[in-house]
């Protein structure tokens, strides 16, 4: 094999990644809230998958396992250092309802971007796992490496923070 050991599963690995990469990209985009960060997190994750393909390939749900790896990589990356971006620390930014630019959809996206960035990484990940992937507490807890009650607690605290924004005052936890 010309490419040596790193070819690992060869065609099988490559096909698996290509089949799943679209879904992972969408998930990573929501999880990270930053396209470049999501790109790096996803690339790092796929590299880790390549290194462990002989272990991951035979799993019954390898794609779901890789999604857990994406969450782990995201959390680990953010724990090391907030390296790519600096955000204003002035809390009043959430009250900035200033000039509406563009469509309502863009306004909503920007508002969500801004408010989700207020959340610590674990709370953000818990919110995404619950409200984007619709995972139950137990499965979300496995992704995050914490207890189910920890998931509920993270989501509860996240919603309290998000409700600070005037557009999100109606967010109620539906645990």
């Amino acid at each position: 094999m010309e490419r040596g050991d790193v070819d690992r599963g060869g065609v099988e690995f490559e096909q698996f990644v290509k089949d799943e990469l679209g879904g992972w990209s969408r998930f990573a985009g929501v999880l990270c809230g930053d396209r470049q960060l999501a790109h790096d997190v996803l690339a790092d994750t796929v590299m880790a998958v390549a290194a462990r393909w002989t272990e991951i390939g035979p799993m019954s749900h390898p794609a779901a396992y890789v999604r857990r790896m994406i969450v782990t990589t995201f959390l680990a990356d953010r724990r090391k250092v907030r390296r790519r971006q600096t955000y204003p620390t002035d809390e009043t930014r959430v009250l900035d309802t200033g000039v509406a630019a563009g469509t309502a959809a863009v306004d909503t996206r920007l508002m969500l971007d801004r408010t989700l960035r207020m959340l610590p990484t674990q709370q953000r990940a818990a919110v995404v796992l619950r409200y984007y992937l619709d995972l139950d507490d137990e499965t979300a807890a496995e992704h995050l490496g914490i207890s189910p009650s920890g998931v509920r607690s993270n989501i509860s605290r996240a919603l309290v923070r998000l409700r600070v924004h005037p557009d999100l005052t109606n967010l109620e936890q539906d645990l």
């Binding site: 985009g29 929501v30 396209r35 470049q36």
Partner: peptide, 9 residues
């Protein structure tokens, strides 16, 4: 939140 997925890499 789901609409944010359009902004993935």
């Amino acid at each position: 939140l789901r609409e944010q997925e359009n902004h993935g890499p």
